[in-house]
Write a protein that binds this DNA or RNA. Structure first.
Length: 423
RNA sequence: GGAGGCGUCGCCUAGUCCGGUUUAUGGCGCCCGCCUGCUAAGCGGGUUCAGGUUAAUCCCUGUCGGGGGUUCAAAUCCCCCCGCCUCCGCCA
């Protein structure tokens, strides 16, 4: 949710932000008129209510006939108050809805436009040149006994898989390496629930345009999270965080579930795009002023992790139209994926500024003691399946074996090479 | 899944049976001031959060886990939901 005062005081800035995302100013106009209607309704209700309270005291003090007369008089007042209160609630609801429909204000630095309008910030490493015909991760995973797609489909359907043998080991190794890095950097490690209430899902902005991608539990008021960002954002809901405790940094492990609605036929091969994967996610609460520097730090930690996996990647600055509802700026780290002959997103970090904290009512205090919404940021340390794809394909050898990146070896009991168990 | 108990402004707590002089007690903590050689003690005042209004203050409204209802009037009575605790059942 954007700052209602910004909307009221500087609507043109909000309109400009909308157009940067390729959206019309219609929702801005709707929110503005809803704000006016709301304030009128509040003033009317409060005036009447004040009258009623004053009369109520007279009733309490009065006796006999005088009391009966007052009662008759105040009865109409009570009916008015009730009607005005209901009207106020409706106006309030419409205002909230209108306000929530407006995406976060994109950062001035974020490129304007849609999905294709990102800017490349930097390239790290160079895509590997193969002197043999490289295999894709599906083939490598089969040879290594690491990925079982057929049985994944049998048991759970398309876009599911089993990680077996070194595949399962690789998952635990990646998770442990991510958790160790996070702990060394001062993060609090967390294991987060994957099932959350509507409040958490709604508060993080995933029940808006992204709702189609969210699994709902039938007969329950619960959703499966697509990222532990959801649980970690709601973790401090309704709290006023001690300024001295900021930044609060969490590294959360959780399974993630995505319906991938609207991506039928896209990335159907292998484990690149799946309905379930496990992830270690960084999540930070800090002040809005500090959030911009923190965003760079999150990006640096993501790069550190990718560097340790010895991958070639580029960093892109996502365009405003591709930010999603909550983010004001987003950097994606895209690793070179040999079988795709292209860069593909491995990690992503977003600065959501006050957008989520306003919805979830998470605040801190300014130097003069006033409450103010915190900023929330998130960033992927490792999304296991995509990391595995990148590692297998990048570090494969001609015989189908895979050389384990140095940094990962301690997490695999010193294993230097993953060896095929079948041709 | 069943039975019972509980939820008050940071923490503790009065008020709930029997609705109205409650603008929700009081203590601790914290903040400001007085006093004091310094500190402590003592004394006085302040101290939920949000919204409306305002240049700002004042003021007004809401807020006793959340929502709804009864009533002229609800922390107090009724209903639903959430959470915590105790016991029983089931279970990795």
């Amino acid at each position: 949710m954007i700052d209602p005062r910004l909307l009221r005081d500087d609507p043109d800035r909000v309109r400009a932000a909308q157009s940067k995302r390729g959206l019309s100013g219609e929702s801005v106009d709707r929110a503005l008129s809803a704000d006016t209607a709301r304030r009128t309704a509040i003033a009317e209700f409060e005036a009447r209510r004040s009258e009623q309270k004053a009369m109520g005291k007279q009733v309490a003090a009065a006796q006999g006939e005088e009391k009966q007369a007052l009662l008759a008089q105040v009865k109409q007042l009570a009916a008015d108050v009730k009607a005005l209160e209901a009207a106020q609630a409706v106006a309030e609801e419409e205002w909230t809805e209108a306000l929530k429909a407006i995406p976060n204000i994109a950062d001035d630095e974020a490129p304007a436009g849609g999905e294709e309008d990102y800017t490349v910030i930097e390239h790290v490493g160079t895509p590997r040149e193969f002197d043999f015909e490289p295999r894709d991760h599906v083939e490598l995973g089969r040879m290594l006994g690491a990925i079982d797609l057929e049985r994944g489909a049998k048991v759970s359907g398309s876009r599911f898989y089993f990680l077996t043998g070194v595949g399962a080991q690789l998952q635990l190794a990646l998770v442990n390496m991510a958790m160790d890095q996070a702990r060394a950097a001062g993060f609090v490690q967390a294991a987060a629930p994957s099932l959350v209430r509507p409040r958490a899902m709604e508060g993080t902005g995933f029940l808006g345009q992204a709702a189609d991608d969210v699994y709902r539990i039938e007969g329950e008021e619960l959703y499966l999270v697509g990222t532990s960002e959801v649980a970690m954002a709601a973790y401090h809901a309704d709290e006023i965080l001690d300024p001295a405790s900021l930044p609060l940094r969490y590294a959360a492990f959780s399974p993630c579930f995505r319906k991938e609605a609207g991506s039928h036929g896209k990335d159907t091969r292998g484990i690149w795009r799946v309905h379930w994967f496990d992830k270690v996610e960084m999540f930070v609460y800090t002040t809005v002023e500090e959030s911009y520097a923190e965003h760079q730090r999150l990006l640096a930690w993501e790069k550190e992790f990718l560097d340790k996996l010895e991958l070639a990647y580029r960093v892109i600055d996502t365009a405003a139209g591709d930010l999603g509802l909550s983010a004001s700026r987003k950097f994606d780290c895209e690793a070179w994926i040999p079988s795709r002959k292209a860069y593909g997103e491995l990690t992503s970090t977003s600065n959501c500024t006050e957008f989520q904290s306003r919805r979830l009512d998470i605040r801190t205090r300014t130097a003069d003691g006033q409450t103010t919404p915190v900023a929330t940021l998130n960033g992927t340390l490792t999304a296991v399946t995509r990391a595995i794809v990148a590692i297998l394909e990048t570090h494969q050898n001609e015989d189908g074996s895979v050389t384990v990146p140095q940094a990962l070896r301690p997490y695999l009991g010193g294993l230097e090479t993953l060896k095929p168990i079948s041709a």
